[in-house]
Design a binder for these strands. Structure first.
Lengths: 230, 230, 230, 230
DNA sequence: TATGAATGAGCATTCATTCAT
DNA sequence: TATGAATGAATGCTCATTCAT
């Protein structure tokens, strides 16, 4: 029954394609409007599916968003891992990480933003919390494993790059985890700077700037040698 | 009509006191629940005013939030200016800025978060409004002058501290504006890191870490002297 | 401030009148359509309030229904208690109970029906159960105290009438609770007979019929004396 | 075309078997969840047919329910007829009727419930339909012949048992139809008593109780003889 | 024939804002 | 001035039914 199988396959393909299509469309709407502003009607209209159909593919609005975020993160993880594996100097790798992350943040704007910034919302989305009317007692709520794993993997990759630098003698013998934290903060913070008026640096310029400071800091070398640096 | 004037004055006083009271209460609620989760009913209940009265004092929910943010920022501005004026070494001043901003972010959580993170929302709040269904083309939308001024003032203060450092020969002769950008990014990014698992550093530890990296970077001094640093 | 007080009072009056009005309207709609078929839009349209206004007065659709039922039952309870207190023969009292309950059932049709007949629904309405998708494990769920109290009071009243009959020697020395059960069953069952084709007896005729059977059964007196009856 | 005929026959057999299977499954679900709570998805899942297939066999959800009820009633009818035909005393027959009906009600709970209790629903199911928003004027709406016939048959059977009793001199010379009405009411009403707290009588005890009252009423024999009974 | 996919029409509930007093 | 009352416009989600293959 090759015929039957093929048909079945094609159908399954269509299903997964539809899912993918919905996710992509939803992503772009979420990115444009943010989570709350995006309605199921929006997604329905833009996908040209009926709302009911959306609910065939996903259990809820937050499910859709949840998956959008997951995909987004997985994308970042695998790209960063690629960067780490290339045969390049540590410095080049870091530069590439910055370049990639800056464009990534820029293009995923509202998506990443929500993940980094709206804990209350995230908790709701992640179904950690349901009770709408009860005050949440802070951040004790844990984030789903899937997400944590990816975030850890991303940090791990960056940490490894830094460790390489330390081992090669390029970097000081710092705690690589701390260094990773600082590095990520720099990137994240630089991106979420939309408020300040457009200094509008290109990605390239931004990368240079950030890398520069991350590498050599702001002290003069004289000062620097005086002992703070071992 | 002295009598009239007095009454009028008393009146005005009361009005401005009420406004202040509402703003303070609202701030605490916004801080607790975030913007969208906070309803006018919440504010009404907690201020013990009627919703209609709130609308006597403010034109809309976003107006309230708008002013809350403004106040919040003004607070930061004046504190940072105080720090700058003290008779301390540049390094100490930077350390104090970090300390202050970290606690500030921590305590104003939801408030600052929205400002940095929900552009769509901010646009709505700021009344830079827009037909709802048309895609926004990014940051071209300008932020109200009030805000811009404060943000500029804050940046200016930090920039000045850095300039001091440059003039005293402690810092390299970098572009102080860029340095300020990097410094702020570091702070902001470090704060919005709630996602990653709790490295739970104290404010003091965090300050040390950030300052360390900002000052001397990650390169070894040897590498450092080799020429990258002039 | 007599004036103020009066106004306040008038307003409170209006509030409670509105509540009452909504309840009455809702009752008639529930009675016509049943619980599920009745939508908040129906109630809104027929009361000429907006849906939002309904939610000012009641927390939910089920709350409205809940109160409708409660009122309905209270009405019955107090009327039955009046009947019991009158100076009449036991038989007359029972006849009056039948008369009243038959008209009561007839006029409250769908309301009482739901109470007696849709446990699953009632549980939902009574908020005993929330989880929509989990199978309920039967009737173990208890009914709210308010309701139980009223039902008990009603049974109690009927039981007392029967006890009077026993004490006066008119009735056999039966267990009055059992007799009450039988009596109520007879009434209830007679009413919920709408399905069978219209025997359309008047209330009066029905009362006579039911009372007759309840009083003397169907056996011939001869048979009757043979010992079954002590 | 013997071949064709056989195939056709097999086909028809399968069809009717499938119908039967669906009906049985549906009955158990209806019984568990009630009419409205039962979705076509439920039935589809439990029969392992697709929803579309269900619609090949039945025109609508209400059609399915309709037939379920019909079957249920036919079952009762034939069992009652069996009871009537047995060689037993009238009293025994009545006792058996009670026993059977009580277990029957108990096991068909939600099914019979709807039939007796949700007129609006039944009307919809029976397609006696109606413009939704117009008040229904009660019971004028007729029930489909099928149902009426069965209900009549059931009543007829009970009536006949009672007639036997009258003819044998065991029962008073009452109108057997009225007696049947009273008898059925007693049963039905006794069952739909879920509200009151669990007197939890067994079927046997219940049967004794009901029969007792139906047979000899509540008056003392003295009172009884005084003339009310001829 | 059998079915996976698609959908339209609904529905309870929420909330910022306005209005009459 | 202050406010209780009123509301329009949304919004996420459900389900019986149809259709294309």
């Amino acid at each position: 029954m090759v015929k039957k199988d093929l048909r079945r396959e094609r159908e399954l393909l269509r299903v997964s394609e539809n899912r993918k299509f919905i996710l992509e469309t939803a992503e772009s709407i979420f990115a444009r409007k943010g989570y709350r502003q995006t309605t199921m009607d929006d997604i329905a209209e833009e996908t040209q599916f009926s709302k009911a159909t959306l609910y065939r593919y996903f259990r809820s609005k937050s499910d859709i968003f949840s998956e959008v975020i997951l995909n987004t993160f997985q994308e970042a993880r695998s790209e960063l891992q690629k960067i780490q594996k290339r045969q390049n100097s540590t410095e080049t790798k870091l530069r590439e990480v910055i370049r990639y992350m800056l464009s990534y943040y820029r293009c995923k704007e509202n998506i990443t933003r929500i993940f980094f910034v709206e804990p209350t919302l995230m908790q709701k989305i992640m179904k950690i919390d349901i009770s709408d009317h009860v005050a949440l007692s802070g951040k004790e709520q844990t984030i789903p494993k899937d997400y944590v794993e990816i975030v850890i993997a991303i940090r791990q990759t960056i940490t490894e790059i830094i460790e390489e630098g330390i081992n090669s003698g390029d970097f000081r013998a710092v705690d690589p985890h701390e260094a990773c934290t600082v590095f990520s903060s720099l990137l994240r913070g630089y991106h979420f700077q939309w408020t300040t008026i457009n200094d509008d640096y290109s990605v390239e310029e931004s990368a240079k700037l950030l890398l520069d400071y991350f590498l050599i800091g702001i002290l003069t070398s004289k000062k620097c040698e005086k002992g703070e640096r071992i």
